[in-house]
Amino acid sequence: MLLMPSHDLASLKPGEHATICGIHADENLHHRLNALGFRVGKHIELVRRARFSGPLHVRIGSTDIVMRQSEAARIQISHRAA
């Protein structure tokens, strides 16, 4: 597995996979993300994006989550080159 330089989650395209390598959020958001399964090293998939720069639909394990781009931008990922 080749790890490329890191991006944030908002830069992912639908259908792409990545690994979380950092979460930059205040304690509140951090807590909430943790509870939903966002942890460093976890595998994440961008399922789809809503029109007009709306929210993102992501999948972690078997959990589906929607979040705005502003929140997604706080999650650092490393692309998994296929």
Binding site: N28, L36, V66, M67, R68, S70
Partner: peptide, 10 residues
């Protein structure tokens, strides 16, 4: 609203 918009899709 300070609430981040993060919802689980059940």
């Amino acid at each position: 609203s300070d609430e981040p918009f993060i919802l689980e899709l059940p």
